[in-house]
């Protein structure tokens, strides 16, 4: 839920409430990660490292559900819908443009919710490995999740899975680019 209401508030206040939206969203990714079979068998340090380098990318996949690429609008969980132009004024213009493009590409694959969830698990364990102590364990976990994702898609649509699966894996570098280009965007928090 995002309590952003443009009408009565200053740009700074909108920016702060938009920033607040990230806190619960990040916590949900942490809980999601702990539910990935095998993730909690990694060392705690490696769990933290993967989350720090992968959470932004997982959020990008999650936020796709809020975006309507055809109408270029964003609908927050509280039901408020904003055209891209309005949110561009918040200073996230380039990130939003990139998110709309990514959302369009991912949406074209018409994935089911369970496939998207498994894809997000793959995204997380495929994140940048610098700082990981046991890369072999992470790679093994990644292979298992990729295999499960391929099987899940194949089971649902055997004839198209040969086309869908490679396209889906091609979204991973897109997400890494999004992360490298935009995770340094600034958020603002009021401290009373």
């Amino acid at each position: 839920p995002c309590p952003v209401s443009v009408a009565s508030r200053s740009g700074q206040q909108i920016w702060e409430s938009f920033s607040q939206c990230f806190t619960p969203a990040v916590r949900e990714v942490v809980e999601f990660a702990k539910g990935i079979p095998g993730f909690q068998e990694l060392s705690q340090q490696d769990q933290v490292m993967l989350l720090k380098s992968g959470t932004f990318q997982v959020l990008m996949v999650r936020f796709c559900a809020l975006l309507n690429p055809e109408e270029r609008t964003v609908t927050f969980l509280n039901g408020q819908t904003y055209p891209q132009s309005t949110l561009r004024g918040l200073g996230m213009g380039t990130l939003l443009d990139a998110m709309f493009d990514f959302s369009e590409n991912l949406g074209a694959l018409r994935l089911e919710p369970d496939e998207i969830a498994l894809f997000m698990a793959v995204v997380l364990v495929s994140a940048d490995r610098s700082g990981i102590s046991d890369t072999a364990a992470v790679e093994q976990l990644q292979e298992g999740l990729i295999h499960a994702l391929r099987s899940l898609i194949h089971r649902r649509c055997p004839e198209q899975s040969a086309a869908i699966f490679p396209k889906l894996l091609l979204r991973l570098p897109d997400l890494r680019t999004l992360n490298n280009l935009h995770s340094d965007k600034l958020l603002a928090f009021r401290i009373d």
């Binding site: 806190t23 942490v30 933290v48 720090k52 995770s183 340094d184 965007k185 958020l187 009021r190």
Partner: peptide
């Protein structure tokens, strides 16, 4: 006076993750 803390998205994400793991130790 109200003060504002500005941090990058990446730092904000790292901060919440560190907080979460510290809390659950």
């Amino acid at each position: 006076p109200k003060t504002h803390r500005v941090m990058t998205l990446a730092d904000h994400i790292s901060h919440i993750i560190t907080q979460d793991f510290a809390r659950n130790q």
